[in-house]
């Protein structure tokens, strides 16, 4: 449980940001350009009473988190493969380099040519997550202390026991750090893909509609929704990771 002091501190920081936002909004003086925190939060409160807000947010979450999960699993599998086989590393590393270096919008536009709009955010999330998890996990596998593996063999550990007792705890910190970092990237890129691909039931679609109708308050309210969901996801992930580290 966070201490009272920490709660007060968080509340104070939030208040400072709101005051700065309010001050800048008053200075600009046009809700169309910069809505005030009050109007944005009011609009968000209205949106939250609508069933479609929850449905669209849920579907956006589902698309991106499915992509994220597939990305993490694929990243780990690729890391195991490329850390064990130099040929696999030589064969696959150019693909990793291309994905890392290319702008995400190129992939979104390409994916739009080949896939339905619903699938684009999912695939983009996968593409964002795979190289990060792959690189970090492969490096961690290669950095595992060879002397510990040798010790395990000398003391009769099976291959599976060596993986469980030596490789997994050794790789876990870097893997979990990559999972946290890539979650933010998957989320941002996934929503960006929705804004371009416009799947009908999505946060990205609502964001685009707000922009099209010049409803700046809606744009801000949906952006706030995206930020809140992202923070919630990260909080859940960090809590889950603490448990995994504790159990490992």
């Amino acid at each position: 449980m966070p201490s009272k002091r920490k709660l007060y501190q968080t509340a104070l920081i939030a208040l400072i940001y709101l005051l700065v936002w309010e001050a800048v909004s008053l200075l600009v003086g046009k809700e169309l350009l910069l809505p005030s925190p009050f109007s944005t939060l009011s609009r968000l409160a209205v949106l939250l009473t609508k069933a479609e807000t929850w449905l669209f947010s849920g579907l956006t979450l589902l698309r991106i988190m499915t992509g994220y999960a597939i990305g993490v699993i694929s990243g780990v599998l690729l890391a195991v493969l490329t850390s064990r086989s130099q040929f696999a590393e030589a064969l696959l590393s150019p693909l990793r380099a291309i994905v890392k270096a290319s702008p995400v919008t190129s992939f979104i536009l390409l994916a739009l040519l080949w896939l339905s709009s619903d699938m684009v955010p999912l695939v983009i999330s996968i593409l964002m997550v795979v190289p990060m998890v792959w690189t970090a996990t492969a490096e961690a596998i290669l950095q595992t202390d060879i002397r510990l593996i040798e010790m395990g063999k000398m003391f009769g550990l099976t291959r599976w026991q060596i993986v469980k007792k030596i490789f997994v705890p050794s790789v876990l910190p870097q893997f979990l750090a990559a999972c946290t970092t890539s979650l933010g990237f998957a989320w941002k890129s996934g929503v960006a893909a929705e804004i371009i691909a416009l799947p009908k039931q999505s946060i990205g679609y609502m964001l685009y509609q707000s922009k099209l109708r010049i409803e700046t308050t809606d744009l801000f309210a949906w952006t706030l929704m995206i930020v809140a969901l992202s923070m919630l996801l990260e909080w859940l992930l960090v809590r889950g990771m603490r448990r995994i580290r504790h159990d490992a």
């Binding site: 010790m151 003391f155 007792k165």
Partner: peptide, 23 residues
């Protein structure tokens, strides 16, 4: 063979008991 290596080669994430129970 049972071995005491030149270095301890203990698992940093395991307790003394878990380390001594390796194998």
């Amino acid at each position: 063979p049972a071995v005491v290596f030149q270095e301890d080669r203990l698992l940093p994430w395991s307790t003394a008991l878990e380390n001594a129970a390796t194998g």
